[in-house]
Design a protein around this nucleic acid. Structure first.
Lengths: 236, 236
DNA sequence: GACAGCGCCTTACAACGTAAGGCAACCATA
DNA sequence: TATGGTTGCCTTACGTTGTAAGGCGCTGTC
């Protein structure tokens, strides 16, 4: 039972970075609710209170997670906009937003966490600053740039708006119940079910899981960009 | 100490409705974190466990809150669209969205609660169904209607995207610290501060609290509606 | 008048975040 | 080399949360 019995790697010394990395791994794997101080500590082979020497409480931990994600987004966006250097404003912005989206898809918990934070993380302001820069570069007034930011909304950070989420996401595969539910839905929500029927990309999938694809994201992007271009032309 | 000593109103008999009403009042007044089972029970002059006879746990309580808000939105939207009957699709939809927004402004906690729910509330589908109906009535294909729903995103439910939230919303009025922070910001975020300076509606307000007005909401609405109209014209 | 059950309460428990303090190992200094 | 402070982790304990289990009084019915 000697402490520090192992030869190499006698438990490397914990740190904010290690804690944050473990937290992200944990949340990626098991979702936000799984992230408790005790659980994270266990994941690091340590007791809960030990975390407090490297992190200012749970709130600070969450702030760290947010900052890390924003950092990833910022990095991805910068790369994306670098490869699109010289292009017009909309392809540059589009690349930026799509890059942000890939990060968000890697961390599905990020939107919920970000929007639950009591204050807007500092990194987000930097991100917005870059957007405004691109818009200004594209010949937009501050006024339209401002409104554009609002219009983009969470889209700018890569949030995918999932209109339809499977009603029972858990391993529920009660077929007859699902069919009954579907029938009831068809009566109560005629237009929605008609749309689903008309739009179902893969016809074999009755779970309404056909949304939130890249297509929708880019459609919205084009919609907004077109609108902004016209707003600029008519002089905002 | 006789129980039931009061003459009239000997504590009317609790019910799901009374509990939900009290919960909404509580959350309106003190925010979501204040809503605990014990606190809500106390507000009703009752013990915590008594709530479980009328509500299926806290999750069920939150579901009830969501349903209530969606109900308010639905009612307001129906009224709005009724007064706009006969108008074209965009004024009808616009009225609907603005009505939803007034409800959301009454319940600032609603967006956070709604987006934190693990499954989309049933009422939302009904709401979307009405939107699709209006779009179809306006001559849109299901495909564009589908994409329109995604493009609207949370806007359809009246969510106001607050790009800027006061960094320290608490009664922090440390003037010199705020000024120092502002100066640092001007250096780190030149475009954003320039925009803020150019856009500040009331010049005396340095807290960046000049966003998220009705104007921005309607601007985005017009942007999207214009775009959709053009998408319809070119045949989606 | 016995009895069923509704409505509320009491008690208790596990899990959470975290305050307070302890203890071993290190490191600089005298 | 002895010593005292600092660092890094642990132990214990507390208050708060949601809620399972069961008790107790009132009310209505046969």
């Amino acid at each position: 039972m000697g402490s520090r019995m192992g030869a190499k790697n006698p438990r490397e010394p914990l740190s904010r970075e290690r804690a944050l990395a473990a937290a992200i791994a944990l949340v990626d794997a098991e979702g936000l609710p799984a992230l408790t101080m005790r659980r994270l500590a266990a994941e690091l082979g340590v007791e809960a209170m030990s975390l407090y020497y490297h992190l200012p409480g749970k709130e600070g931990l969450l702030d760290g997670l947010v900052d890390t994600v924003i950092g990833e987004i910022e990095a991805a966006a910068r790369r994306a906009e670098a490869t699109a250097a010289g292009e017009d404003w909309r392809t540059r912005l589009g690349q930026r937003f799509l890059a942000a989206r890939t990060v968000m898809l890697r961390h599905p918990w990020a939107p919920a966490l970000l929007s639950s934070r009591p204050t807007i993380p500092a990194g987000v302001y930097a991100y917005y600053d870059a957007i405004i820069a691109t818009l200004r570069d594209g010949g937009f007034s501050y006024r339209i740039a401002h409104r554009a930011l609002h219009a983009f909304g969470s889209l700018a950070l890569g949030f995918a708006q999932e209109v339809f989420r499977p009603a029972s996401a858990g391993g529920q595969t009660d077929v007859e119940a699902a069919e009954a539910e579907l029938a009831a839905m068809a009566e109560a929500l005629p237009h929605l079910t008609a749309m689903a029927a008309a739009e179902a990309h893969d016809a074999a999938d009755p779970t309404l899981g056909w949304c939130d694809s890249q297509i929708e994201f880019e459609f919205t992007l084009d919609l907004l960009f077109d609108g902004l271009e016209r707003a600029r032309a008519t002089g905002g």
